[in-house]
Nucleic acid binder design. Structure first.
Lengths: 136, 136
DNA sequence: GTTGTTGCTCTCATTTTGAGACCAGCACTA
DNA sequence: TAGTGCTGGTCTCAAAATGAGAGCAACAAC
């Protein structure tokens, strides 16, 4: 057995054991990844990594998100501790969302993936076209 | 304006311009991220990063995935060029899935996030508990 | 008083996912 | 020879997530 592979295998075994116990909520990676892998999470994290935004600003920034999903995605990110929600007593009251330290720390890691995506999206797109063509 | 922030802002502006054009399929990051942010994609990539797996092996490895979603997720990953699907003419025929070079390259980037998740899942979990408690 | 702005929530239609039955082809077994 | 199991799927139907859009309260500006 290759040693470079042992740690990944162990993670999976731990995962399996947890599933066997009926509690897959103990798989660390899924605990975290499931909640930032929503359709809109990455986009919102990207925006908030730039600077704090108000609700309406985010809505205008990502025009194809529904208000419902914007509310819900922000609340999920807040629940996991990535995003801070602050209400300002203006009239009408405004709400500002910003990254927490935890969120910023996580963003530093997910940013690698974003950079990869920027640099390699043509290849992905090409693969997709080829696959679809072969499927005819 | 802080210079460290300019590139993120530009990406978002590019994104907005594309949306304005009616084509948000040109946003590089979404093109890539949407398809690996599925519920099961990360888990399967993790497994396949370790070594190639057969369909049934993956099924046993991730017991709480339905056969239907396993098929579909693998096909999506294959379509984007991350995963190679090879049929062996055994009886009954077996199918092996493995990471392509593109998939491995992408995995190197997403792995940062997985490591972060391993190291910080307690904090996420704690934030979640606190949020839920405050919500009473 | 009419309209606009804020950040939501509620309802309902559509889409995605989950659970499980079914399938073909061959091997092994009784 | 009939039964059983293994392979990697697909098909159907229920459940869950999402999208589209209306409604809402309170106050400002006109």
């Amino acid at each position: 057995m290759d040693t470079t592979v042992v740690s990944a295998r162990r993670k999976i075994e731990i995962y399996r054991a947890n599933v066997g116990n009926g509690g897959l909520d103990n798989c660390p990676i899924r605990t975290v990844v499931q909640n930032i892998s929503g359709k809109w999470s990455a986009l919102l994290l990207m925006a908030l990594a730039e600077r704090p935004y108000r609700f309406g600003e985010l809505r205008r920034l990502v025009p194809d998100i529904s208000q419902r999903m914007l509310t819900q995605t922000l609340r999920d990110l807040q629940r996991d501790g990535y995003v801070n929600r602050e209400v300002f007593p203006t009239k009408p009251p405004s709400v500002e969302y910003s990254l927490t330290d935890l969120g910023r720390s996580m963003y530093d890691s997910i940013e690698h993936l974003f950079h990869w995506a920027e640099n390699n999206h043509q290849q992905v797109r090409a693969a997709r076209v080829e696959f679809d063509a072969a499927g005819d």
